[in-house]
């Protein structure tokens, strides 16, 4: 992983053309920058939700480009469930320091006080309290009226219908029947008092686009995406990394060392790794090109029931 700081863009170059049209990644890049600028120009108090993952990394990189040579005109918000991989937190803090970012970290303290965790409360309750509720708390506390998220439409079927500007009621609910049509690139950015929008600048990107862009732009990512020897146990068929000693092991269960990487990053007890030798971004791309399993496969929360993501969204989960 080469780490060219996002603050010093590569040397000047004309965008590479294909005939008269912009190349695919250049087109996506410019469209996303357009969306990010549109929010900065029209909302009172935007925030960028930064989840430390690859999509957030790309989104942040695009935002830095959108306002260069100036600074980001909004803060970043990380909702910390306290169960993220340690490497993620380290990466987040280093990045914020290096780029001088205005980073807000929010933890649902009531959840912490109640000892909510994925083991005794189950993934559903844990996600609801430490992620969904926590996010609402943070948005309400700061009065943000627009929140960027790194979700893509190709992630999941219910996301395929998500708008780029997704309207939320005062109680942060998403109503699939009450979303605004989006025509051309004319975004309706008007909202009433207390209402807000979630904005998804990467809507039109695929997982592969994200990786190819990371490669092209040398965007730093959390090393957990790359294959390495890691201590794991097998739970319900998923390879769960034993990231710290809070993880209760069954009697006789011994973590084994396997060469794994993660396709998405979240709470370590809820994120299944895959066995892989892909130890560079180029190899990840090669692996994905041959892959037959979707990205969300490793996420424990989606399997709870058919349509579970849609329900979560209605409740205000990102």
């Amino acid at each position: 992983m080469t780490d060219t700081s996002t603050l010093t863009p590569p040397a000047p170059s004309g965008a590479r053309a294909h005939g008269d049209r912009l190349s695919h990644l250049d087109r996506l890049e410019s469209e996303s920058i357009h969306i990010i600028r549109e929010v900065a120009a029209t909302f009172r108090k935007p925030v960028m939700l930064y989840s430390i993952g690859k999509d957030s990394a790309v989104m942040l990189h695009l935002a830095l480009k959108a306002f260069a040579p100036g600074r980001l005109p909004f803060p970043l918000l990380h909702v910390d469930t306290t169960w993220k991989f340690r490497e993620m937190i380290r990466f987040r803090d280093d990045l914020a320091k290096r780029l001088g970012l205005d980073l807000i970290v929010h933890i649902n303290q009531e959840g912490v006080a109640d000892g909510v965790n994925p083991f005794s409360h189950g993934s559903k309750v844990h996600t609801d309290i430490m992620k969904t509720q926590a996010l609402k708390q943070a948005l309400d506390r700061h009065g943000f009226d627009a929140a960027f998220g790194g979700a893509r439409r190709d992630e999941e079927k219910s996301r395929a219908k998500e708008r780029i500007f997704s309207f939320r009621t005062k109680s942060h609910r998403w109503d699939p029947k009450n979303q605004r049509p989006e025509l051309w690139s004319l975004f309706n950015t008007e909202i009433g008092a207390g209402e807000s929008v979630r904005v998804f600048p990467l809507s039109n990107w695929t997982e592969l686009d994200v990786w190819r862009y990371i490669l092209k732009e040398s965007i730093p990512i959390v090393p957990l995406y790359l294959a390495a020897e890691r201590p794991v146990v097998t739970r319900d068929g998923a390879l769960i990394m034993v990231d710290d000693d809070r993880m209760p092991l069954d009697p006789g269960e011994v973590p084994e060392t396997r060469r794994v990487r993660f396709r998405t990053l979240g709470c370590y007890p809820l994120t299944g790794g895959i066995e892989s030798d892909a130890d560079s971004v180029a190899r990840i791309i090669a692996e994905l090109e041959a892959s037959r399993a979707s990205e969300r496969q490793g996420r424990v929360i989606d399997h709870d029931q058919i349509g579970s993501m849609e329900k979560k969204k209605q409740e205000g989960y990102f």
Binding site: P12, S13, A15, S30, K65, A68
Partner: peptide
């Protein structure tokens, strides 16, 4: 100023 620096 383009996404990747100065342009002509």
């Amino acid at each position: 100023l383009g996404p990747s620096g100065d342009l002509e």
